[in-house]
């Protein structure tokens, strides 16, 4: 069918371009470890949203989104920590985006979402709800406060906190 050389170039060129793009994101995902959220079910204890240090420099935060706040509202951790966020919703759907990181998740009632980020730069990271959740949606936010690490000396300099979700595991 494709007798015309220009048409043939266009078809193969388009295919090649998209293949290259796809290869790039696969390298990003598996080489650099930049992953999207994945499926995790019913991780207790969401009745007690909390920041828990599970190992030195390793934190787990259970976040419950509800109309129109996040619980906890402030997450304090020292610089250089790796934080796993488990997220669910008590009522309607919400969003959870931590600015200047790759953490971006939906909070859906009945299921748990999970993502991980490393925070090297001290400062405040705004968390916004980016899914419409009713009347007070635009007032719904929280913060990660990364405190400078004083005792142990300077933390590793990484320009941006990197997020990566853990592998998918069923219940």
């Amino acid at each position: 069918m494709v007798k015309d050389p220009f048409e043939r170039t266009a078809i193969f060129g388009a295919g090649l371009l998209m293949t290259a793009f796809f290869v790039a994101i696969v390298i990003g995902a598996f080489g650099l470890g930049i992953r999207v959220p994945t499926c995790v079910t019913d991780i207790p204890p969401f009745d007690q949203p909390a920041v828990v240090e599970v190992a030195p420099g390793q934190y787990v935060v259970n976040v419950v989104a509800q109309m129109w706040l996040f619980n906890p509202r402030e997450i304090r951790i020292p610089a250089g920590s790796t934080v796993t966020f488990n997220l669910t919703s008590k009522d309607v759907q919400h969003g959870f985006k931590i600015l200047n990181t790759n953490v971006n998740m939906m909070a859906v009632p009945g299921v748990v979402n999970r993502a991980q980020a490393r925070f090297d730069q001290p400062g405040e990271y705004l968390i916004v709800c980016h899914e419409y959740c009713g009347l007070g949606h635009h007032a719904m936010s929280a913060k990660v406060i990364v405190e400078p690490r004083t005792a142990e000396g300077p933390s590793l300099p990484t320009p941006r906190a990197m997020a990566s979700a853990l592998a998918c595991w069923a219940r």
Binding site: V36, C39, T41, M105, M106, V108, N113, R114, A167, C168
Partner: peptide, 15 residues
């Protein structure tokens, strides 16, 4: 892509 309950492998297939 940012939803829970759907595995990464299927998200990548849809990508």
């Amino acid at each position: 892509y940012t939803d829970p309950a759907i595995g990464q492998e299927w998200k990548l297939l849809h990508a």
